[in-house]
Amino acid sequence: MSKHNIPGAALITGASSGIGATYADRLARRGHDLVLVARDTARLEALAARLKAETGVKIDVVTADLTQKADLARVEARLRDDATIDILINNAGVSVAGAFVDQDLDRVESMIQLNIVSVTRLAHAAARAFAARDRGAIVNISSVVGLAPELQLAVYGATKAYVTYFTQTLRLQLSPNIQLQAVLPGATRTEIWDRSGSGGADKLDPAMLMEVDDLVDAALAGFDQGELVTIPSLPDPADFAAYDAARTKLLPNLSRNRPAERYKVSEPA
Rank of each mutant, 00 (worst) to 15 (best):
V139Y: 14
N140A: 02
I141G: 11
I141S: 11
S143R: 09
V144S: 02
V145D: 10
V145G: 06
V145C: 09
G146A: 00
L147R: 14
L147I: 05
A148V: 02
P149I: 06
E150I: 07
L151K: 14
L151T: 13
L151P: 11
L151S: 13
Q152L: 12
Q152D: 12
Q152A: 10
Q152V: 07
L153F: 08
A154T: 15
A154D: 10
A154L: 11
V155S: 00
V155T: 01
V155M: 00
Y156W: 04
Y156D: 01
G157W: 07
G157M: 05
G157H: 07
A158K: 06
A158C: 02
A158D: 01
A158Y: 06
T159S: 06
K160D: 01
K160L: 03
K160C: 03
A161K: 08
A161Y: 04
Y162C: 07
Y162E: 04
Y162V: 07
V163S: 08
T164N: 13
T164E: 15
Y165I: 04
Y165D: 07
Y165T: 13
Y165P: 00
F166Q: 03
F166T: 03
F166E: 02
F166I: 06
T167A: 04
T167H: 04
T167R: 06
T167L: 03
T167D: 01
Q168D: 07
T169A: 14
T169V: 15
T169Y: 15
T169Q: 15
L170G: 07
R171V: 01
R171N: 04
R171A: 06
R171S: 03
L172Y: 13
Q173C: 04
Q173K: 14
Q173H: 13
L174C: 08
L174A: 07
